[in-house]
Design a protein around this nucleic acid. Structure first.
Lengths: 134, 134
DNA sequence: TAAAAAGCCTATAGTAGCTATAGAGTCAAG
DNA sequence: CTTGACTCTATAGCTACTATAGGCTTTTTA
């Protein structure tokens, strides 16, 4: 399978695949005589794994760790659980932050309902004040 | 006021201030004989505005636009409202995405409660499957 | 008064995870 | 045999900073 086919099969950009190789997430594949990369089922599976993790917003470093566990099938998988728990916590925290932010933004938005001139715009005036919270 | 004082007054890193200058968000200040930057009240106010916007997670480009409106006090501020509305929408969407993600991650986490060996870990196995949704 | 410490300067590279570009080579179809 | 699609490497760009190196200025301390 050439890189374009692998790209289609995993819904990934060609450049991204080369980038993962460079990052050591995907092993270097064999090459044709014309120097084209040739991939097999193992690559397909590994890239599928990576993309699935990315769709869950995991960092490449987290994925690197998960791949290490996958490569050592006799290891205890408690670390996988830990990693996932930590990631869930990160996401939960981020949601909390964003909700807070949303509230602030909506409050700010209410300061100017009319279309007046900038000099009297409640939003611009408020933004000129020092940050209070957050 | 020297750069360090401005940094303290606005709770900003010195490097960040120089970066804003380079980006054209802060006007170039006067210099002392020894080539140190000297800031006045205007700089303080402008940086306060920028930092306030950043604390609301606005992009530098959005801030650039807001600054333009601020600099033209006779302009109609309808664009300010539009910009803010768009930003609120972005944040709201991001929250929605993250909630969905959180759900998926928690579902994934339930696939492995025990500490077994990696080869039988429900999480690693699931991650090896192609992405279905999202 | 001299030396040490703190602060400032510029220029450059690194962070994350790609995306885009340039310029060249390879391959299949018409 | 030429066109077009695909591939190759190397490099730069994106965001918003942060960090580093190496050198100057100013302030503090002995």
């Amino acid at each position: 399978m050439k890189i374009g086919e692998l790209a289609k099969a995993t819904d990934t950009q060609v450049e991204t695949i080369r980038f993962y190789e460079q990052e050591g997430l995907l092993p270097k594949p064999a090459r044709t005589e014309g120097n084209f990369r040739i991939y097999g089922q193992q690559h397909l599976q590994r890239l599928t794994f990576i993309r699935h993790c990315r769709s869950l917003d995991m960092a490449l470093n987290e994925i690197r760790q998960l791949l290490r566990f996958k490569d050592l099938p006799n290891e205890n998988c408690g670390s996988v659980n830990n990693l996932l728990d930590a990631h869930i916590q990160t996401v939960t925290n981020r949601i909390k932050d964003l909700r807070q932010l949303e509230k602030q933004l909506k409050g700010l938005r209410e300061l100017c309902q009319a279309n007046q001139d900038s000099a009297h715009c409640g939003i611009l005036n408020e933004l000129s004040q020092p940050v209070k919270s957050l």
